[in-house]
Structure formats: C-alpha cells, structure tokens
Computed example of a mutant assay.
Amino acid sequence: MNLESPRSRYQQVADDLRDAIKRGDHPPGSTLPSQPELARRYGLNQTSINRAIAVLRAEGLVRVEHGRGAYVQEIPTVKRVRRIDKEHRPHTGSSAYAEEMRKSGLTPRTELVRVDTVIPPAEIAELFGLGETERTLIRHRHMFAEDVPLQIATSYIPMSYAGSTDLALPDTGPTGIYSRLAERGHEPVRFTEEIEVRAPDPAEARFLRISEGQPVFEVLRVAIDAQDRPVEACVNILAALQWRLSYSWRQEP
C-alpha cells in the first residue's frame, strides 16, 4: 500500500486485485479471497475492501453472490460482424451467431426458452402495422459460448407470415427461420439494425451475470422482404463488456 499515492486506499486495492486477475492469479470462475482475508492482507477495514470489490464489479471483472463471495467473471470476448453484401453470408447451414462463436474459437449453444403467440410490445406492433389485439409468434432464446451466458434473442413474426406450425418447433430446419419464411414467399432481402445502449432489467442482468449498473446493447434487427414488408423483428440483448460490434458495407456505384 503506497501511502504517498494520490489514489485512495480502496482504489489501490482495486488496482492490485485487477492486476492479479489479468495476470491469471485468479482465473475465470474462481472466487477472490474473502473480505476479512483481504482486510487483513491490506491492513484496511472491510468497508474499504467492499468499496474495492464494488469497483471491480462495476467494471465487469467480478460478480458478487451474497453469502458466497466475489467470483471472477468468465467473459469470452466476441466480435459481432455484420456485412451488408450477400456474398459474405454463411453457407454452412449454421446461424450467424454460431458462425461468430466458432470464428472466435468458442463452442456455441442455443437454448429455446419459449415459443408462443403473444400480443407484442407496442414498438414491435407498430413496426408490423398490427392492431392492438393482433398477435405474433415469439421465439425467445438464451445463447451461450463455452456454457457462459452471452446473448438473449427474442424474435417476433406476424402470424400472417408465420403460417404453419413449423416455425414454432424447437428446430426450424436447415438455415432456420429465414429459409422457412422464404418457402412462404417472404424471403428477407435486406435488414436494418438499431442499437441502443441501456441498463439491463433484473432478469437480463441475472442471466448475463452482470450487475444492473453495467450497460447492455439492445440490437433491434428487422428482416424485410422484396415487397418492403418487415417479416421478422429480433431483439438481441448483449452485455457490452463482452461484445465488439463491427459493420462493413460496399460503396454504392
């Protein structure tokens, strides 16, 4: 502890623990020493140690479970790439999410949490031009990499486009939702995305293992067919500390 430093003592403790995490002294998933142990090590009271842990928690380096301690976050870093030109779309039959994970050297997994028909949120209903009582198909998924929670995705499809029940099945078949829409004459030919940075709600924070003060990206992706009709809207929730968003496109002639 440097008593001459202009940084407060709890900040110095946070600096020291941060450096230890980055060196690998405390690997992902491990617990930090208990607050009483850290207080003895640094010669400080537990209030100061608690403030140091709060700094690391706000940075997304640890998560705190009451009664169990502070755990070092398991954070895979993922680059989310979006290319505009069709030739760059994957042809493997895998989803874009699965392709992104594999390119990052991670093993993807998707868990289908809910399939149902619902009255969508007002923003989604307005996007589709639906009335107050009209319903959409909803597909709500939890997505993982190396079994670490990484993304929440919720797709909405108007019932007039969803057609038969195969889109409500856990497995929607080769290349997924968009191929099934194409078979119905509603192939997406272009996409738009709107990105908002906001605080997570409690359920989102709990699943993504982040504090409610850490920001998330909310990415609203809309699939549009050749008749310029929105045929699917997907709301993706991503913990900002885990993702880097990358976009590229070709210059129009």
Rank of each mutant, 00 (worst) to 15 (best):
M101F: 08
G67Q: 08
R63S: 03
I49Y: 10
R89D: 05
I84N: 09
E132W: 04
M159S: 03
A54V: 06
D25T: 05
L112Y: 04
G105C: 03
L245I: 04
V72H: 02
T110F: 07
V197M: 05
V115E: 13
T175F: 13
Y97N: 13
G173F: 06
A96V: 06
V148K: 08
Q251F: 03
G60K: 10
Q214E: 12
A39N: 07
S30V: 04
E74C: 06
Q12I: 07
T117V: 14
S34A: 10
A153I: 00
I49G: 13
E134T: 08
E87T: 14
E65M: 01
E74S: 13
R114V: 08
A125R: 14
E37N: 13
R41H: 15
V197H: 03
I138L: 14
Y42E: 04
R80V: 10
R114D: 13
H91T: 12
R41F: 15
Q73P: 01
I195C: 01
E232K: 05
M101Y: 12
Q251T: 02
A58F: 02
T92V: 08
R198Y: 11
I224W: 14
L112N: 04
A122L: 05
E146V: 07
A205H: 03
T77D: 12
R229E: 15
M101V: 01
A54D: 12
I119M: 00
A14Y: 10
D228N: 15
D16I: 04
L137Q: 02
W249Q: 10
E59C: 02
D171R: 08
A98I: 01
R244N: 05
I237G: 13
F191I: 02
L150C: 15
L150M: 15
E126K: 15
I210S: 11
R139I: 08
F207R: 01
W243M: 08
N236P: 09
G24S: 08
L112S: 06
V13M: 15
E87M: 03
A98E: 09
E212D: 01
P200V: 00
A162Y: 12
I49F: 02
A39S: 15
K22F: 11
G67V: 11
I119Y: 06
A168P: 06
A233R: 08
R206T: 10
E111P: 15
G185A: 15
S94Q: 15
A199K: 10
L245E: 07
P200I: 01
T165E: 12
T31D: 00
Y42D: 05
A54L: 03
K79Y: 05
E212Y: 00
P76W: 04
D15S: 09
H142Q: 09
R102G: 04
A203Q: 05
R229D: 13
E126V: 06
D19V: 08
V64S: 14
I224R: 14
P121F: 10
S211I: 00
Y247E: 12
A203C: 03
L17A: 10
R68H: 09
L169A: 10
Q251V: 04
E4Q: 12
H186S: 14
R40D: 15
S164Y: 05
Q251S: 04
T154L: 11
T172K: 04
P27T: 00
V216L: 09
E4D: 11
